[in-house]
């Protein structure tokens, strides 16, 4: 058959091919002329064979069923071999059509599943990020009072009993801005700075005081956070989270350009020592 020569569709099986042939006839599946379909089906198989394509066994079984149906029709009704019991169910034409109808429904259902499959590729679920609530910080002693910090500093100052001779004149060896830079730098590499660590390197009373002032200045600017996990425990210094800058922006009347820029440059030392 010439119209079959360009037929290169892949069929899922003999039923699929039959459906295709029925569709080409453009008639209702129940009204299809099975004899004609049988001829086309066998032509198709011949063609597959001529193209050296592997013909699955199922196609041959279907071809034989169709040939059987066709051969039955060749005999006049009264000469047809009596089927054991003349039941509608045993009519091979009916069996085939019923099978075709059922297959067609599932083929359509498969098509609908395919649409859903493709649609699902375009659906993105809303997955919000887990809100960060600084879980480990919340049980801390958040409002560390100034007295506690002063208490801590005075205990460090006790290390340096001797007061420097007041009449001695000497150059400022430490400045608050230097110390601020220093603390900020240390916090860049270290998540948590212990209060005792901060004063571990100090060599004199003056240096302790300067360091302490730097600490207070950074707290005032909300660049750092000074916390205590429980009363009387070690005081810890951490970098303030980004959100704090945002709140600073709103609360403080200072121009926003101040925030985030390096403190030592913008803010001159308030307490030149």
């Amino acid at each position: 058959m010439p119209e079959n020569t360009v037929q290169l569709e892949i069929f899922e099986g003999p039923l699929d091919l039959l459906l295709y042939l029925v569709k080409k006839e453009e008639v209702d599946i129940y009204e299809v002329n099975l004899t004609r379909i049988a001829t086309q089906f066998i032509d198709f198989i011949e063609q597959m064979r001529s193209l050296d394509l592997d013909i699955a066994g199922e196609f041959l079984v279907m071809a034989s069923t169709l040939m059987y149906i066709k051969s039955r029709e060749l005999l006049p009704v009264d000469k047809q071999a009596l089927v054991e019991d003349e039941d509608d169910e045993d009519d091979p034409r009916w069996d085939l059509i019923r099978q075709l109808v059922e297959y067609k429904k599932f083929k359509d259902a498969a098509g609908q599943l395919q649409v859903k499959e493709a649609l699902q590729e375009d659906i993105f679920a809303r997955v919000p990020g887990k809100p960060e609530f600084e879980r480990e910080e919340s049980p801390r002693h958040p409002n560390l009072s100034i007295f506690e910090i002063i208490g801590a500093v005075s205990s460090i100052l006790k290390r340096y009993h001797q007061r420097e001779e007041s009449r001695d004149v000497f150059a400022d060896r430490w400045t608050v801005s230097e110390k601020i830079e220093n603390i900020v730098l240390v916090l860049k590499t270290k998540a948590v700075l212990q209060f005792s660590e901060l004063f571990g390197q100090t060599t004199s009373r003056v240096e302790v005081v300067v360091t302490f002032l730097a600490l207070l200045e950074l707290m005032r600017l909300k660049q750092i956070r000074v916390t205590q996990s429980e009363p009387f425990s070690e005081i810890e210094i951490t970098e303030a989270p980004r959100e704090d800058f945002a709140t600073t922006k709103i609360e403080e009347p200072t121009p926003p350009s101040d925030i985030g820029t390096a403190i030592p440059i913008v803010q001159p030392p308030l307490f030149p020592l």
Binding site: E31, E73, V101, E102
Partner: peptide
Amino acid sequence: DLPSADELRRIPVTKPKTLVTADAVG
């Protein structure tokens, strides 16, 4: 939620009185 679920789970197929087989239309 499967498409046309009711229809596919139970398929009533009605057999027509005459089935067309011969070349002459039934």
